[in-house]
């Protein structure tokens, strides 16, 4: 008997909850005032990598547009759980934000589902080129292979041991593109060079990233690179062993000013500005953008502290120009 009652209570609770569900969600309010952006990001805004590159870009966009009067943005960082991110995206859209940025390739599926429910809101998804043919979704990606290629060219010109090391997270997406570009650039410059690549299977295991770098050093590497937030462990190893380091996504110079040669930096504002302009004109999506060396969305930042030989600097500049002109192909995209 008592058990039966238990079951009844549970059913009653569930029934009550469901019936409470009848209320309609509040309609998004049309607001005068600043342009409102919401962004959902997988890691933390100060990861010195992927998420920080977007956060910093938003700060720059805000400044260019004229501060908080003109544009405000809210963020959810650390949203690595895909369905939590989906809930956040839907919620931001329902709150009436003008632009909702899903900054992670794993969020695409959710966006595909949510965007049609909010035809007045513009969504943007990266990194990808796929807008699903939905006309309120923009897409963006980084041609990270281009900066990778340039870094590879410089590394291969500077190495004395002819061995380079790469520390990657998992073999996919932006990371794989960057690594493949680096390998291609290095091999095109110096046929004798050997590039050892290590994927550690994690975006967060700083200790293993550091040990991967140690392995590269033991294998003779005198220049290394790596991508994603766990490489901060590898940079320390480079510094300790006086090996050159090449950064990507955000500037990593400050972590090891003596050994960082160059960084590929993402400047998403190039894409964001364009998207904000389009929204102003009434286009809410349907286009995809790529940041690359040509449009200034990717910049190679040389560490001023590092004494880069003149001829290598020239070679790097020529390579950048060659990629922009299309005379050099990174040869990684299929």
């Amino acid at each position: 008997m008592k058990k039966l009652r238990w079951i009844l209570i549970v059913l009653l609770v569930v029934g009550l909850l469901l019936s409470a569900c009848q209320a309609q969600p509040a309609a998004p309010e049309e607001e005068e005032g600043p342009f409102q952006i919401a962004v959902v990001m997988p890691s933390s805004i100060n990861d010195l990598a992927f998420s920080q590159s977007m956060y910093d870009a938003l700060l720059r966009v805000q400044e260019e547009m004229g501060g908080e009067e003109a544009m405000t943005f809210d963020y959810s960082d650390g949203m690595f759980v895909v369905d939590d991110a989906a809930a956040a995206i839907r919620d931001y859209a329902a709150e009436g934000y003008d632009l909702v940025i899903a900054h992670g390739s794993q969020y695409g599926s959710s966006l595909q589902e949510i965007a049609p429910d909010f035809p007045e809101t513009s969504f943007v998804w990266g990194t990808t080129v796929d807008t699903f043919g939905i006309d309120n979704i923009f897409a963006y990606e980084a041609a990270s292979d281009e900066g990778g290629y340039v870094n590879g060219v410089i590394a291969a010109s500077l190495t004395e041991s002819d061995v380079l090391g790469v520390v990657g997270p998992i073999e996919t997406g932006d990371a794989k593109l960057y690594v493949d570009g680096f390998v291609a650039g290095a091999e095109a410059t110096n046929p004798d060079v050997q590039v050892n690549v290590n994927y550690i299977g994690s975006f967060s295991d700083v200790a293993l990233a550091s040990e991967a770098a140690n392995t590269h050093v033991a294998a003779g590497a005198d220049a290394m690179t790596g991508t994603a937030q766990m490489v901060v462990g590898a940079i320390g190893v480079a510094e300790e062993n006086d090996a050159m380091w090449f950064g990507t996504q955000s500037s990593q110079t400050e972590l090891a000013p003596d050994v960082v040669v160059a960084n590929q930096i993402y400047r998403w504002e190039v894409v964001l500005n364009e998207i904000i302009d389009l929204i102003g004109e009434g286009t809410l999506g349907g286009q995809s953008f790529t940041i690359n060396l040509e449009n200034g969305g990717e910049v190679i930042e040389f560490n001023p502290e590092y004494d880069l030989p003149e001829d290598v600097k020239d070679l790097a500049d020529d390579t950048i120009q060659g990629i922009i002109d299309g005379t050099i192909s990174t040869d990684v995209s299929e």
Partner: peptide, 18 residues
């Protein structure tokens, strides 16, 4: 031993299941 001996940095969730 991780943050000031082996790695010399601190990063969120740096132990990563260790």
């Amino acid at each position: 031993s991780l943050s000031i001996a082996l790695l010399n940095v601190f990063q969120q969730n740096m132990t990563s299941g260790l």
